[in-house]
Amino acid sequence: MGENFDVDLSKNLLEMKFMKKTKEQVLKKRDDAEGQAMYSKQISDKMRKSDGDIIFRQASISNCKNLVEGRLSFGGMNRVVEKLMESDYNKKYFDAEKRKEKDVSDEQMAKEYSTVVDTLNKKFRPKKQRNQKFQKPSTTEPLV
């Protein structure tokens, strides 16, 4: 059902019980339109675009370098701290280990995979196209 609120529904119709949701939507739309008309004079084009302005946010060195929270316990000295460490220290440690173990990096995998896709693509092409020989581009033509 294509809902089109451009059609003005009568006041009496909107008051009816089954029109509750529609009434809310109509009211919201009217409010939005009113608000926009009110403030459109004050908001300039420059404010809307503000090209290239950057909002700077201060952060701790731990956020920058991805450091762990400093309270650590080893060998069961403080069970409570060790439990809290699970989600922070141990997770970051395992992630780092995993990254080291991976003998094929994600980027390499993506590259390899795309060549496999290419070769398989060739296989499903009609024979005529498949056997096309590579032609050396003429040297007189510009490269780009």
Partner: peptide, 27 residues
């Protein structure tokens, strides 16, 4: 302090294998 707080640095873990201890490192 920053080096030790890096989870990839194994120094604190290696010490933890020798004996139990609790440490708090502030930046």
């Amino acid at each position: 302090a920053e080096t030790l707080l890096n989870a990839e640095n194994p120094l604190l873990r290696t010490l933890g294998k020798k004996f139990p201890y609790e440490i708090v490192i502030g930046v």
